[in-house]
Simulated scan of single mutants.
Amino acid sequence: MKIRDSMRWGESELIKKGIENARFDADLLLAEVLKKRRDRLYLEWDRNLSEQEEASYRKVIFRRAANEPLQYILKRQEFMGLEFYVDERVLIPRADSEILIEKWLEIVKSENEQGQGRLIKVADLCTGSGALAISIAHYCPSAEVVGTDLSSGALEVARQNAERLGVPVQWREGDFADPIKGEYWDYIITNPPYVSAEDYGQCAPEIFHEPSIAFLGGPDGLDFYRRLAEEARPLLTPQGKLLMEIGWDQAEAVCTMFRMKGFETQVFPDLAGRDRVILAR
């Protein structure tokens, strides 16, 4: 097939399987197979694919048609302007989570302007691919960052990302906050599993290719917030703060948990106007 015929075939196969953005995905996958930028496909519209290229393209199209996430096939995802390696061991970073980093950077900038500039200790719980921890270390060199995860496989991916992006992050394996106990932290950030068992069963089919441990937060999705509300106070410096990503309908419940433990809370929306991040101090 020529490039133009391959693009049309790939789009058609994905449409038949109900894949959204079928043309975009088909184009990206062909560009990946041919090791070209997407725009070059249109400039070389009439070039014939080799048998090997055609076989490789069919393989990745069938993977996408089976609802495997595009990011896992391409082995990459952009987050905060940085490119992260991702595979089936880690949750795919979402743009919604960038709100957490943006708010953290705003807070740190404000404190520096008030004359509080200093080395700060930051712990990222449930780090996964390391997207949050690495973004903080990249954009704030004065931060001493630790990322924790229960999954050794996830930490392997996080280490790989940190090395490739050239940022210093310390990685610790263990259950939630256990690896950072016995120390005092200026900030604890986390995008914990917060999907309820009922909601998980109704997720888009691509979700089931990602590690379920990164989604499931107990029967109501709030188990990890309960644990953090109980465990956080001895881990924070007197001015320490927590920044947590939440599900769109969880703000009231999570804020109540932390207020009952003596924290002040503030909620920030994502770009769609839905509650997305809670600051607790």
Results as ranks from 00 to 15, higher is better:
95 A>R: 08
45 W>T: 10
162 A>D: 02
218 G>C: 03
266 Q>L: 15
91 L>P: 03
53 E>P: 08
40 R>P: 00
190 T>L: 05
149 D>A: 00
109 K>I: 02
22 A>M: 09
83 E>P: 05
203 C>Y: 14
257 M>Q: 09
210 E>V: 02
69 P>F: 11
187 Y>W: 14
54 E>D: 13
99 I>L: 13
182 G>V: 09
267 V>N: 13
4 R>S: 12
118 R>L: 08
255 C>I: 10
25 D>F: 08
5 D>C: 01
246 I>C: 09
240 G>T: 01
256 T>L: 15
231 E>L: 07
18 G>Q: 12
140 C>S: 15
111 E>F: 04
105 L>I: 14
142 S>K: 09
120 I>T: 04
137 A>W: 02
235 L>R: 11
199 D>T: 09
66 A>W: 06
198 E>Y: 08
112 N>I: 01
60 V>P: 13
83 E>N: 13
40 R>H: 11
200 Y>R: 05
190 T>F: 02
123 A>M: 07
246 I>S: 05
164 R>L: 13
154 A>S: 04
182 G>H: 05
87 D>L: 09
101 I>C: 08
50 S>W: 10
267 V>Y: 13
136 I>F: 08
272 A>I: 05
235 L>E: 11
61 I>A: 07
204 A>F: 05
129 S>E: 10
2 K>R: 14
61 I>Q: 02
205 P>N: 08
85 Y>E: 04
202 Q>T: 07
48 N>L: 13
191 N>A: 01
26 A>R: 11
82 L>P: 06
57 Y>D: 08
171 W>C: 00
204 A>H: 12
192 P>M: 06
15 I>R: 15
174 G>Y: 06
226 R>Q: 14
221 G>S: 14
68 E>Q: 09
44 E>N: 03
226 R>F: 03
115 G>F: 00
213 I>D: 15
265 T>Y: 07
22 A>K: 07
244 M>W: 00
61 I>K: 05
257 M>S: 05
96 D>N: 01
239 Q>V: 03
